[in-house]
Write a protein that binds this DNA or RNA. Structure first.
Lengths: 183, 183
DNA sequence: GCCATTATGCTACTTCTAGTATCGATACCC
DNA sequence: GGGTATCGATACTAGAAGTAGCATAATGGC
């Protein structure tokens, strides 16, 4: 029994999941810049005002959508090398999912000049993985942050410059490179 | 004597350099999102229409500004390791220049969902360095592109997530990591 | 010095999007 | 059925990208 009793009134239906799905498909079809909140709301079958009641800004919506799309990191493996390799391949696969890479790159760009959104992105999306990696690898924070910069930065740069996710051979090269330093 | 004779009429003054300088200072002061074409033009002391007569879009202006700010890469050194290390440190220094990193991250983000701008960015900014690196390192194109993804992606990711350029110690780590693979 | 030529400055405009306000309708739990 | 909080719909504001039209200014050539 939860401490907070369910409040009375019209409850929220499964709107979050519907909006998240609509966000990814809209971004995948039209691109981040053309995925306006109006269009996302229409694709989800909800009113734009409903979106803004649940998320304070478009960037916050995209970030929440990405947190949902990525989910918990599968830090599985018997040793550091296996954990790292699995984490990199998992990240590469997620970035290659339809809409995820474009949404990631888009919200990242928006965050560059929006300190508030940057905090949301760092806290809600990056920090859980950073903390989990610090524990799984027994590495200091700055080392894990560097690892995230390299892996995510490389994947997003490829996605942004070519419009296509990184091919398997290059993901292999990324895994090899990182393992030589942190493995 | 150039093949194309100078056309008659009012010649262009040194407007390009003025606008480029105003672009970087405006982006450095206000951030990419707030560096509107109106404000950049005002900072440069020219009319907005003049900017749009010279560059077809804001993204093209920023790209041209970055091409000017980066200039030719100093691929100096007696061996591959020296060349690579110098190139990485040079890139890190440029990204850390006031306005350059933010402008780079911003135009990169814009390019993700704008194929036309992506072409401009790849052709005018990336390709010259790619070709020069291919010759200097005697590496195939896909290998050099991977190198660029890693170095620029890492630097931009750090800049985007923290708002600050990468510190020297982490640039050292980046150099070490790349040298283990390509050096 | 004058003229043709071309770029610039200026004003106004269109279009699009993020985000907000208001209010009636609706769905849920009790 | 009633209370409550959310949803839908419409309308709105503010701001930025990009465009149009025209008067003006600066240059080289004569």
């Amino acid at each position: 029994m939860p401490v907070t009793a369910r409040p009375p009134g019209r409850p929220r239906a499964g709107i979050d999941a519907t909006v998240f799905a609509a966000t990814l498909t809209t971004v995948a079809e039209l691109g981040y810049a053309n995925a306006t909140v109006d269009r996302i709301a229409a694709a989800a079958g909800v009113a734009k005002t409903t979106v803004y009641r649940r998320w304070p800004s478009k960037g916050a919506l995209i970030t929440a959508c990405l947190v949902d799309a990525f989910g918990p990191a599968p830090l599985t493996g018997t040793d550091r090398a296996e954990i790292l390799a699995a984490a990199i391949r998992w990240a590469a696969g997620k970035v290659a999912d339809p809409g995820v890479g474009a949404a990631f790159a888009g919200v990242f760009t928006d965050a560059v000049n929006d300190p508030e959104l940057r905090g949301i992105l760092a806290t809600q999306l990056q920090d859980p993985y950073r903390v989990a990696l610090q524990e799984a690898l027994d590495e200091p924070e700055n080392r894990v942050l560097f690892f995230i910069d390299v892996v995510i930065g490389t994947l997003i740069h490829r996605m942004g410059m070519t419009g296509e996710p990184m091919v398997a051979a290059d993901v292999d090269a990324l895994v090899d490179m990182v393992l030589r330093v942190l493995g």
